[in-house]
Lab assay of single mutants.
Amino acid sequence: MGFKLLSKLLVYLTASIMAIASPLAFSVDSSGEYPTVSEIPVGEVRLYQIADGVWSHIATQSFDGAVYPSNGLIVRDGDELLLIDTAWGAKNTAALLAEIEKQIGLPVTRAVSTHFHDDRVGGVDVLRAAGVATYASPSTRRLAEVEGNEIPTHSLEGLSSSGDAVRFGPVELFYPGAAHSTDNLIVYVPSASVLYGGCAIYELSRTSAGNVADADLAEWPTSIERIQQHYPEAQFVIPGHGLPGGLDLLKHTTNVVKAHTNRSVVE
C-alpha cells in the first residue's frame, strides 16, 4: 500500500471513529477524501466538511520552486461564519470567499490569524475590503508590521502568557507558548472536538522541520505538551499544512522538532 493511500485511509478511519463516538456532533463529509496538494491548482481553494458547521479550507501556493498546501478553518456561528487564517495570499483568499459563498452561503463576518507569517495573514486586506472584521493577538499584529505583512485590524486580548485561553464565538483560542513562531495560536472547536494546530503542528508525513527561522526550538516541545494537557479530548487535529489526523500529530511534531534540534547540535 502506497504512503499517500495509507495517509488518506488514516484520515478516513479517524473521521469514521469520530462519527461513531459522537453521532450528534459529527456529520463528516462523505463526498470524498481530504484534498491534497496535487489536486488543488494554485489560485483555487477546496472546502472539506469535518463536522456539522465545521470545515477546513485548503489552498496551495508556490514557494521556492515548489507547491505547498495550506489549511485553515471555518466555523459556523449562528447565521454567520468565523474564518481562521487566510488562504495564503490575496488571490487565494478572494477564491476562498467565493467558494464559501458557493458552498455554504453564509457571510464571513470575523477572521482570526493564528500567527504573523504570510500563509496566515496574506489576504487580510481582501477580507477587510469584503467587510470582514480581522483579528490577531497584539504580538501577531506587531510582528506582521515588522515583517511588512498585512496586519489584522483588531487585537485579541488575554493571550499574552503561555497557557492563556479565551473564548471567541464558537471557538476557544489558546496560546501554548512559542513553537513554530513566538505568537502562534491554537484554535479548538469544543462542539466538535476539532483542534486546529496551525503551523505549530505537523502532518504525519512530514519528517523535516522546514521553516524554523522564527521558531523557538527549545520551547516548542513544552508548548505541545500544554496543548495535549489542555485538549486531551480532541479527536480531529488539523495541521497548518497537509493531512489531518488525531492527537498523534502532536507527538510526531515533537519528535521531528527534537530530531532537528539534535542534528543542529551535532553539526
Rank of each mutant, 00 (worst) to 15 (best):
M1Q: 05
M1K: 05
M1I: 06
G2T: 07
L5P: 13
L6D: 13
L6Q: 09
S7V: 10
S7Y: 14
L9A: 13
L10V: 14
A15V: 08
A21P: 08
S22A: 12
S22W: 11
L24D: 15
L24S: 13
S27Y: 10
S30L: 11
S30I: 10
S31T: 12
G32M: 08
E39K: 12
P41S: 11
E44Q: 13
V45M: 04
Q49N: 12
I50G: 02
I50N: 03
A51D: 10
V54E: 02
W55M: 02
A59P: 05
S62G: 12
F63I: 15
D64G: 13
G65S: 10
G65W: 06
P69K: 07
I74P: 01
D77C: 03
D85K: 00
W88R: 01
K91E: 15
N92V: 01
T93W: 00
L96Y: 01
L96G: 00
L97H: 02
E101M: 09
E101W: 08
E101T: 11
V108Q: 00
F116N: 03
H117K: 01
D118N: 08
D118Y: 07
D119A: 05
R120Q: 02
D125A: 09
V126K: 06
A129P: 03
G131K: 09
S137A: 08
P138I: 08
P138S: 09
T140I: 04
T140P: 02
R141W: 03
A144C: 13
A144R: 09
G148N: 10
T153S: 12
L156H: 05
E157V: 12
E157A: 12
L159M: 06
L159Q: 01
D164Q: 12
A165L: 15
V166H: 07
R167L: 11
P170F: 01
V171I: 09
E172A: 03
Y175M: 04
S181M: 02
D183I: 03
L185E: 02
I186W: 04
I186G: 02
I186Q: 02
V189Q: 01
A192P: 06
V194T: 06
G197V: 05
G197Y: 03
G197D: 05
Y202M: 15
Y202D: 06
L204Y: 09
L204H: 11
T207H: 14
G210M: 04
N211L: 11
V212F: 09
D214F: 07
L217Y: 09
S223A: 10
I224Q: 03
I224S: 02
E225R: 13
E233L: 12
E233D: 13
E233T: 12
Q235N: 09
Q235M: 08
F236G: 04
V237R: 02
P239V: 05
G240W: 05
H241P: 03
H252C: 01
H252Y: 05
T253F: 00
N255T: 11
V256G: 01
V257F: 05
K258V: 11
H260P: 11
T261F: 10
T261N: 15
T261H: 15
R263S: 13
S264W: 09
V265Q: 13
